[in-house]
């Protein structure tokens, strides 16, 4: 297990490097001189010269990548073109907001998905199964930004129960004043993981129920509750893996929902960066989110391995 962990972490290093290379290239695929992508048009000649030298923009690409990487590992993602603030500073607060939204949505989706998927698998072929499967197909087919609008129309515009914008006043806190802002975006964002987890858990449960050992367990006289415990423990590694990955996807994919609800997270940052063609912000945000995703992947892999006794000792 320790060996496996080390090997798995070592394997993540080249991936992380390659991911940062892709992010580095974002500046270079932007049309025009890279300097125009990272500095505002009205930047003074000294600034231009300084940055050009600092990032080695007159040197070959590999050197530039090295210099850029040196900045990045120190937490320096450059400055925003639009407001000249440090990208890193804005990222911290935005990423924490996105994290709140994404974890809430992923947990919600996980719970819904496990319940529906479990029921569907256990009662395969019945009405419950068909309803759960329809929900799952709907969940993965619905454009969630549209669903967000529909929820706003119902719960904010028509009923007036919940706010439709922002994350509430001031800093985030887990009180009703703030949580009520979280409800609609979290529900909106949860439909995708809910649908996917439902599908996966259903498949896993069907597979487990068809295995020989289920007959053995019934043959021992175990009641339904105990059988459920066995099914759950067998299904847990897969379900958790899907859930972990979904969290990663939601962290990186919340941009549309954050746009709909004006949720001040990384998605909003990206959205504004796109509007203002603020490439440093785009690049920094992408890099951080992608790194979180790589780390989550690694974590999920390790947890899954640890949970399965068959893999633990290899």
């Amino acid at each position: 297990m320790l060996l496996y962990t080390l090997r798995r972490i070592l394997y993540a290093v080249p991936i992380a490097l390659a991911v940062s290379l892709v992010c580095f290239m974002l500046v270079h695929i932007a049309p025009g001189d890279p300097i125009d992508a990272i500095l505002p048009p009205d930047a003074s000649a000294e600034t231009v010269a300084l940055v050009r030298k600092d990032y080695g923009l007159d040197k070959p690409l590999p050197v530039q990548f090295g210099l850029w990487l040196a900045h990045v590992v120190q937490g320096d993602f450059g400055r925003s073109i639009a407001n000249r603030r440090l990208v890193a500073d804005e990222l911290v607060s935005a990423a924490s907001k996105t994290f709140i939204l994404a974890t809430t949505a992923a947990s919600l989706g996980f719970v819904i998905g496990c319940i529906l998927g479990g029921l569907a698998g256990a009662f395969r072929g019945t009405l419950i199964d068909r309803a759960a499967v329809s929900f799952a197909v709907g969940g993965v087919s619905v454009p969630h930004y549209w669903l967000g609008m529909v929820l706003v129309i119902i719960f904010s515009v028509t009923l007036g129960w919940l706010p439709s914008m922002s994350a509430g006043p001031g800093d985030w806190a887990w009180d009703w004043l703030h949580i009520r802002h979280l409800i609609l975006p979290a529900i909106t964002l949860s439909v995708i993981p809910a649908g996917l987890v439902t599908r996966t858990v259903r498949g896993v449960v069907v597979e487990i129920l068809s295995q020989d050992f289920m007959t053995t367990l019934r043959g021992k006289g175990l009641r339904r509750l105990m059988l459920t415990v066995h099914v759950m423990k067998n299904a847990a590694p897969t379900a958790l893996a899907v859930m972990g990955l979904q969290l990663g996807y939601l962290m990186g994919g919340s941009i549309l929902v954050e746009t709909v609800f004006a949720w001040p997270g990384t998605g909003m940052m990206l959205n504004q960066a796109i509007f203002q063609r603020d490439i440093p912000v785009l690049q920094g945000t992408t890099l951080v989110l992608a790194m979180i995703f790589v780390a989550l992947n690694l974590l999920v892999d390790l947890i899954q391995t640890a949970l399965d006794p068959r893999m633990r000792r290899t």
Binding site: I29, M251, I279, A290, F293
Partner: peptide
């Protein structure tokens, strides 16, 4: 392929088309 898999898909699409304009 693994490298591109290391990005959440929406993020990758947004980042690339955001950079391209």
């Amino acid at each position: 392929t693994d490298v591109f898999y290391a990005f959440p898909s929406v993020l990758l699409a947004v980042a690339i088309s955001g950079a391209l304009g």
